[in-house]
């Protein structure tokens, strides 16, 4: 069975067994009660451990540095203070934060477009056509998919440096466009969810492969495009090591690398190391962190289903 149908089955069957099991436990095994309580304690306990840091991060930019040290950690400050933190942060280094935001959007979107176009075409070809070299590409894709992308970052720098492209947008966008996991998702999707009859009908109609791809395949690939866009965006928005190595010019940083520079360079996190006239303190740095995190957290909340399905098709198959 495909991973795909596994995921949908998961959603469908959830409520039913829960109900039957609950009633049965109640009737048969009252001795389970302490265990159930222990189960809930562990689950809620870990849930709180997951949520508290995120809530803290949301609240902290609304407080003064002194309030962060003195007040209850999970208290709300004022909106005025949040506005002040925003002003300090955007004034930092001549408004460089806006440059980092734009760069983040530009790098992520650039890689996303190239990833989707190349991934759809290649995944479709490997799933529906047989050609010499197919198996090699498929195997290399699987291998590079399970190897962490960071393993080639330093060699990539040597390569990009050899052609004189370091410190350019291309040095981040192009390597990040190589996204084997996306190609694998496309391959699995087209292997399992494009009916052969549909393609054969299109071919009999005299459509060229490319026309058939545009008019028949693309319309049914919309969920796949969403999935690819989601995973590619999350990976690239959070990318640190590649841009950190490729870009030496602060103006070219993306948000995560900019945040790293802010943390390392401003006295916000180590005030004991000496005074500074910069108004960059803990709330400002926390706000910068929040700006990096919020887009991804929102995507997680909105596209939960994509998330689960993509992760499952990467591993769970029966």
């Amino acid at each position: 069975m495909s991973s795909h149908s596994l995921a949908t089955r998961t959603e469908k069957t959830e409520p039913a067994p829960a109900r039957t099991r609950r009633t049965r436990n109640r009737g048969w095994k009252p001795r389970l009660a302490p265990l159930s309580i222990l189960r809930l304690l562990i689950l809620f306990g870990f849930g709180i451990f997951c949520l508290v840091p995120l809530i803290w991060l949301l609240l902290t930019p609304t407080k003064t540095d002194a309030a962060i040290l003195g007040d209850f950690p999970l208290s709300f400050g004022t909106f005025d203070r949040l506005a002040a933190a925003w002003q300090h942060l955007t004034a930092y280094s001549g408004g460089i934060l806006f440059k980092w935001m734009l760069n983040s959007v530009y790098y992520s979107a650039g890689s996303l477009v190239i990833t989707i176009v190349t991934g759809l075409l290649a995944g479709y070809a490997m799933a529906t056509m047989r050609f010499p070299g197919r198996k090699t590409i498929l195997t290399l894709t699987l291998l590079s998919m399970v190897m962490p992308a960071t393993v080639t970052v330093l060699p990539l720098f040597l390569e990009i440096n050899a052609v004189g492209l370091t410190n350019t947008a291309a040095s981040v966008i192009l390597p990040a466009s190589f996204f084997p996991f996306g190609v694998y998702l496309a391959f699995v999707y087209f292997s399992t969810s494009v009916p052969k009859e549909l393609l054969e009908a299109a071919r009999l109609d005299g459509c060229s492969e490319f026309r058939a791809f545009i008019s028949v395949v693309l319309p049914i690939a919309k969920p796949l495009i969403g999935l690819l866009a989601f995973f590619s965006f999350v990976a690239n928005w959070n990318n640190y090591f590649l841009p950190y190595v490729m870009l030496s010019d602060q103006d070219a940083y993306n948000l995560p690398v900019g945040l790293g520079a802010l943390m390392a360079g401003s006295p916000a996190l180590h005030p004991e190391r000496g005074g500074s006239f910069l108004p960059i303190t803990r709330p400002e740095v926390a706000l910068a962190g929040l700006i990096v995190v919020i887009p991804i957290a929102l995507l997680f909340l909105i596209f939960q289903r994509y998330l689960v399905r993509g992760i499952l098709s990467g591993s769970v198959k029966s």
């Binding site: 290649a122 197919r134 590409i137």
Partner: peptide
């Protein structure tokens, strides 16, 4: 045809996977 579809990705694989 199949290679025309696969080539753009294969180039990325070669340039940023195999070459480094």
């Amino acid at each position: 045809t199949a290679w025309a579809f696969t080539a753009p990705y294969a180039l990325l694989l070669l340039a940023f996977g195999v070459a480094p």
